[in-house]
């Protein structure tokens, strides 16, 4: 099984899985913030490596990335990526701060890591319930840097088995549009087979 062998129906199914997982994650985020959270219909993107770094607009764009490994029945990773302004606004909401910090302090970074943790857990729980697969996540790790550098991490993991990257992307927006983030699920190649066969597609 390779990315190239996925047909349109399989891609639709992966998108639907993203939809169910992200829906659960959006609900969790809304609960945490006590605010409305909107999300788009998740998009399944299959990209050449050279195009991965530009997926968030620009390779040099300063972003905050929260990374978690997926383990057990499924391997791969989940990333939640925010632009810096969104990250500051989100941490202010979580910590009930009204300041105009231009940087993220330790407390803010820890709060954002926890958001990543909760989003990933709720995503993966929905995915696990749907497929009856046992999926666990690692502790979150946060980095603030160029988008290209951050995205190189999941891309490299794909590099071991494929010449393209498959990612399921959902865009979240808080009701007042002061926070916008991208959640990426990147299951590795063997995991597609497991997901699809658990649903009776393969």
């Amino acid at each position: 099984m390779d990315v190239e062998n996925l047909n349109a129906m399989m891609i639709d199914i992966l998108g639907e899985i993203g939809n169910i997982g992200s829906g659960n994650a959006a609900t969790a985020l809304a609960g945490m913030l006590s605010k409305r959270v909107d999300m788009n219909v998740p998009v399944v993107k299959i990209l050449e490596f050279k195009d991965v770094a530009g997926v968030l607009g620009g390779e040099e764009e300063l972003v905050v990335g929260i990374y978690l490994d997926l383990n057990k029945d499924i391997s791969g990773n989940i990333m939640f990526i925010l632009d810096l302004e969104s990250a500051i606004n989100l941490s202010n909401m979580l910590l009930n701060r009204i300041d105009t910090e231009e940087d993220l302090d330790d407390l803010a970074m820890s709060a954002l890591s926890e958001v990543g943790n909760i989003l990933a857990s709720s995503y993966v729980n929905a995915l696990g319930n749907l497929t009856n697969l046992n999926i666990s996540i690692s502790v979150p790790s946060l980095a603030i840097d160029m988008a290209g550098a951050i995205l190189s991490v999941p891309a490299i993991q794909f590099g071991y088995i494929s010449d393209r990257v498959l990612l399921i992307e959902t865009i979240f927006e808080e009701g007042n549009n002061s926070v916008r983030g991208n959640l990426f699920l990147l299951p590795d190649m063997t995991s597609f087979e497991k997901i699809l066969s658990s649903l009776g597609v393969l």
Binding site: A53, E60, G148, A149, I150, L151, S152, V153
Partner: peptide
């Protein structure tokens, strides 16, 4: 590869 004049660039190099 480039010869004589120009710049080769990589943007946002991470673990690569």
């Amino acid at each position: 590869v480039i010869k004589n004049l120009g710049i080769l660039t990589t943007l946002g190099l991470g673990s690569c």
